[in-house]
Every structure is written in structure tokens, then in C-alpha cells.
């Protein structure tokens, strides 16, 4: 009951937030929370890979980039927002499947290296493929008359507040989808793989196939967020999609609590908002120290609360138990 009330309260607060800040001097807050929403969508996707399949993905931003560039290029070509968004997601998923097919058969550690490499390659390609991506100058969507407006039914979305609501509803959709998948045969298979890969295989789970579905599904979230970002920002450049951003995303999932939906949402909020808050409360002299402070906070969480701030019920118990990993099959 209290859970329902607090969820209801959070939903209402989220809906009311833009109305409160819209006409004040704090209107930039709406933009920041919009960004938080986009990162939450991505975090939910990454959580499937990191928290459920137990794989380390260090190049997740590449798929955000693919979604964003697909949207930018299609919009310039005169494609409407919704069909373009569909293409962003589809292309992201397709690329992810091509990447996953060879590497998911390998041991987990390789995946970290391959995804890291893929993230860098993507950024370098975007930087150098001038004829398509306009290189480091990026693609601007502001002046082009070809571009169709972003519209939902009869409303046209243009302001930060408009996009905030779009992102908010997309986020809700993503939460519902994630919950549904986790509470199904697929979700149980993913959990089993995380718990004991060998036992999962020998209980009849097609390991590669199950991993592939989770791996690919996670990228759909990134493609969706990227597509929305491109039209909101009206500008995409390779520098938005660095290795650093990918690492921060992993940090968000780990800090919040791997394998937990509320944990992911909390982790994202903290990692995105704390630097913003520090920016406002610290004196200019201390400004350049804020990432250091932030880093110290991350280390502290890793040491004192390794299961994350809001762990999944199961993961919490697991990490408090003594580690006795069995490697051999016997």
C-alpha cells in the first residue's frame, strides 16, 4: 500500500515538475530531468545486459549514437519523426545483433573488450565519414526546411517541456516492457544464466540464443533514447558518445543496484544529478573539484555498499553471502 502511494506520488511529481519550473528562472531543470529520463531509458537497457546476463558492456553509447544519427539523417531526408524513430530502433537492433552473433559465444570477459572496441570504432567512423555524418562538425537539424516537426496526434513538440513529457511516457513504456520480460520464461532464463551458467545450460536453456535476445533487446532502448535525443537537441556530434559516457552508464547501473529496476532509476538519477547539484552549491574555486568528489563518492559506494543503493532483493542476499564460486562441472 505504501508502495503504491509512493509510486503514485512520484508519478504526480514527475508530471507536475515542468509546470512548476516552466516560467521560473530554473526552467533549465526541466531539461536536466529530461536528460535524466533519457539516461534512465538507456540504463534500463544496459541493466538487462549487466544486471541479468551478467555481462560487462563498455560501449553502450555507440547504440545511442546509432539511434541518434539514424534519426538525424532520416529527418534531414524528410522522413517523419515516428517512422524515423522506428528506423532508429530497428537499425540499432540490427547492428547489435551483428555484433552479438560472433562474440556472445565467447566467454564474458571478451565481451567487455569487444564492446569497448565497438564503441570507439563507432565514434571514429562518425568522426571521419564526412560525406554522411559531416565529421566532427556534426549534423544540425535547425535550419533545414525539409525537416518535419515532431508531432503527437495534433500536438507539435518543440519546447523542453514537450520533450520532457515525451521522454516521460517513453520511460513508463520501457519500465512496463522490462517488467514484463523479466517476469516471464525469458527473464527466468536470464536469471538462471546469471546464477549458474553451467547449470542453466544443462537444464535445457539455449545459452547463446537467450543471451542474444537480451543483448539485442537492450540496444533497442539505446536506439530509442538516441532517436529522441537527436530531435530534442536538434544537433548530433560524435563527441556526445564517448567511452567516458559508456563507463558512466555502467556506473549508474552498478551504483543503483544491478538487476533491479528501481535501483537503475535511482542510480541514474544520482549519477546525473549529483554533479549538477554540486555545480550549484560549490563555490567557483571548488568547481573543478566536483568530479573528484564524485569519484570519491563512487569508490565509497563500491566499498561500503557493493550491492548498490537499491539492490534487487535477490542480488542483495547473494553479495552478502561468502563467495564460493564453483568453476568445474562436477
Amino acid at each position: 500500500m505504501t508502495k503504491k502511494i509512493s509510486i503514485g506520488f512520484l508519478l504526480l511529481a514527475s508530471l507536475a515538475l515542468p509546470l512548476l519550473f516552466q516560467n521560473s528562472s530554473y526552467s533549465y531543470v526541466i531539461r536536466i530531468f529530461g536528460l535524466v529520463g533519457l539516461y534512465m531509458i538507456m540504463g534500463l537497457g544496459l541493466n538487462i545486459v549487466v544486471g541479468f546476463l551478467g555481462l560487462l558492456d563498455l560501449g553502450f553509447m555507440a547504440f545511442y549514437a546509432i539511434g541518434a544519427y539514424t534519426m538525424a539523417l532520416l529527418s534531414k531526408a524528410g522522413v517523419g519523426f515516428w517512422p524515423a524513430l522506428f528506423c532508429s530502433v530497428s537499425l540499432t537492433v540490427a547492428v547489435r545483433a551483428l555484433l552479438g552473433a560472433p562474440v556472445l559465444r565467447l566467454r564474458g570477459d571478451y565481451l567487455a573488450i569487444v564492446t569497448l572496441g565497438f564503441g570507439e570504432i563507432t565514434r571514429i567512423v562518425l568522426n571521419n565519414w564526412d560525406s554522411v555524418t559531416n565529421g566532427p562538425r556534426g549534423i544540425s537539424l535547425i535550419t533545414d526546411a525539409n525537416i518535419k516537426p515532431v508531432s503527437v496526434f495534433r500536438w507539435t513538440l518543440s519546447t523542453n517541456t514537450d520533450f520532457y513529457y515525451l521522454i516521460f511516457f517513453m520511460l513508463l513504456l520501457c519500465i512496463v516492457m522490462t517488467r514484463r520480460v523479466l517476469n516471464s520464461r525469458m527473464g527466468r532464463a536470464w536469471m538462471a544464466i546469471r546464477e549458474d551458467e553451467v547449470a542453466a545450460r544443462l537444464t535445457g536453456i539455449e545459452l547463446t540464443r537467450m543471451k542474444m535476445i537480451g543483448f539485442v533487446m537492450s540496444a533497442a532502448f539505446a536506439g530509442l533514447a538516441g532517436g529522441i535525443f537527436a530531435r530534442w537537441e536538434n544537433f548530433v556530434t560524435p563527441e556526445s558518445f564517448t567511452f567516458w559516457e559508456s563507463v558512466m552508464l555502467v556506473a549508474m547501473v552498478v551504483i543503483g543496484g544491478m538487476g533491479s529496476i528501481p535501483g537503475t532509476l535511482v542510480g541514474v538519477s544520482i549519477v546525473v544529478l549529483v554533479p549538477e547539484i554540486l555545480r550549484n552549491v560549490l563555490s567557483p574555486g571548488l568547481m573543478s573539484w566536483r568530479y573528484l568528489l564524485f569519484g570519491v563518492a563512487l569508490v565509497a559506494i563500491a566499498v561500503f555498499r557493493p550491492q548498490g543503493i537499491w539492490p534487487s532483493r535477490r542480488r542483495e542476499r547473494e553479495l552478502n553471502a561468502p563467495l564460493s564460486e564453483m568453476k568445474e562441472v562436477s
Binding site: 520464461r185 527466468r188 532464463a189 536469471m191 538462471a192 546464477e195 549458474d196 553451467v198 547449470a199 542453466a200 537444464t203 535445457g204 536453456i205 535477490r314 542480488r315 542476499r317 547473494e318 553471502a321 564453483m326
Partner: peptide
């Protein structure tokens, strides 16, 4: 080798996969 952090019932449900 059980799926330690899943419930007893869930362990068997995985067997139905």
C-alpha cells in the same frame, strides 16, 4: 548447482524452459 538466489519454485520453473 542450484540457482541460489532464485526461489525454490523458480528453480523448478527454469526446468520447464
Amino acid at each position: 548447482r542450484l540457482f541460489n538466489n532464485m526461489t525454490v519454485l523458480e528453480n523448478v520453473m527454469v526446468g520447464r524452459h
